[in-house]
Design a protein around this nucleic acid. Sequence first.
DNA 1: TGTGATAGTGAACATTATGTTCGACATCGG
DNA 2: CCGATGTCGAACATAATGTTCACTATCACA
Lengths: 199, 199
Amino acid sequence: MKRTIDRRAARTRRALHEALIALILRKGYEAITIQDIIDAADVGRSTFYAHYTGKEDLLRGGFETLRSELAGARQSASDRRDAGPLAFSLAMFEHACRYKQVYRALVGGRGGTVAVNEIRRVLADLVQDELRGAWDDKAVSRELAVEFVVSTFLTVLTWLLPRASKLTPLEADQMFRHLVIAGIGSSIGSTSRGAASSG
Amino acid sequence: MKRTIDRRAARTRRALHEALIALILRKGYEAITIQDIIDAADVGRSTFYAHYTGKEDLLRGGFETLRSELAGARQSASDRRDAGPLAFSLAMFEHACRYKQVYRALVGGRGGTVAVNEIRRVLADLVQDELRGAWDDKAVSRELAVEFVVSTFLTVLTWLLPRASKLTPLEADQMFRHLVIAGIGSSIGSTSRGAASSG
DNA sequence: TGTGATAGTGAACATTATGTTCGACATCGG
DNA sequence: CCGATGTCGAACATAATGTTCACTATCACA
């Protein structure tokens, strides 16, 4: 079988991904058509479909790099032992800060669904790893906790992106951790019955 | 001007909404075309566009009833004063439980984006109301807190729906409150830093 | 019950995007 | 150099969208 990828194929794929990003920045994900992409990438129509099944497929492919970057960041963080649990978050906020433009274009518009779902999956895998072996709760299953962590992260991220003029990744990370670990119980004065009284 | 809606118009709109729900249950939101809808509703094509700008618009319209139902439920709950803050959640879980089929079809598939966003908006308004006047936190703004509550609610809901064979709305509500108010701090070695190093 | 206003019909049309096919050509790796 | 593989690009089939228009049905109201 073929082990190494043909240069031409690699070139084509790279061109397509770059074109996609450029287009996302220019007009947002949703408005992009296949025609736009292959024009920008200077690639034949049939060639496109030889590689990807559609816009969505192409976008998804672009997240492989993110996945490995994050995995690496998390690894080194947990090696240094300076981040405690949820070590991924700071790395992710930093990543988002660096590629802010792309993130905003992806997450902002409502076309972001595909992208957000993909990010969600990448994160879910990471969090799953981190919570493994350190879970002790009768009220909430670990699966749900993973979803909770991921969705809170994304909430903070998408809330931040349109306003992230001066917020540093570190501050963002602190807000995230505050919410995820302590909830908002300390911030609403009212006493709630039965809510936090599990155990 | 016209205050009361013409019977014919009302009839048409109702037919369209019913058709949409039926179709959502049968084949999922995303796969539905305008043609499907007007066939099922037995309505002329031009008539459809005289009332709605598209599928999405039609769907959105259907949430007006949800909005008022929830507002009512929340009102009576806060009248009885038996729910503390976040009074909406139990009502919403009950609503979701009653219309489980529809919710599953809407939230489950990835076509659910439009629906989920709409639910998100309805909820955000409610939560906004409930958190008004009772917010005291330096670390997290109220706006973000609203987003946090809503997204946590939706996380619990979407996590529950595919498995909600035996969960009661009350139990769901407790999980939700636990997460939102106390976070997961008590379940992981929150301040410890060795907890996550599983490898 | 008649009448003007309003709503609905449905086929035709323009438009836009998708995804496939195929013969000819280019480039790769060996 | 050669066979395998990738690319081109135009043509095609398909499918959905949204608009138009002349005609018909129904409504609200006097």
